[in-house]
Amino acid sequence: MAEVQLIILMTSVALVIIGLYSAIFIDNIIKKIIGISFIEEGANLFIVAIGYKAGGVVPILMPNMDTSWFASNAAYPLPFGLVLTSIVIGASTLAVMLALVMVLYKKYGTLSTKVMLADTSKQEEYNE
């Protein structure tokens, strides 16, 4: 049953590559941000796959379970706890980025990165 983990790893690698591609090559800023959130999700998926155990059980100890059986069969819960934090961090980063985009849209009236985030030192010279 290593197949499950293999499929998950392929999915996460594909997500990271899609995200990196969009972060570098796509011009629209909102799509760029969506792509960046895919990188984050790919990393999360990878870390959850570390804790997975083929044929295991959910790592929650029920009252009627045998402790030694549980210890040898449960999935590894530490990565799950880490991913919980990183999902929330990803959502908050996304919110801050979108807020900045909304402020900048009022100024420029476009979502194009080439216009919005052109080299700022050149912009200053242009204004002078």
């Binding site: 990271v16 870390i47 530490l78 990565p79 980063t93 900048l104």
Partner: peptide, 26 residues
């Protein structure tokens, strides 16, 4: 604001990379 958004975009590429590295170590 432009500079902040640029820094943030670079940052949100850099930090999942670091998270993946931590995942490999884990």
């Amino acid at each position: 604001n432009e500079m902040a958004l640029k820094y943030m975009i670079l940052g949100s590429i850099g930090s999942p990379m670091m998270l993946l590295g931590i995942g490999f170590l884990l």
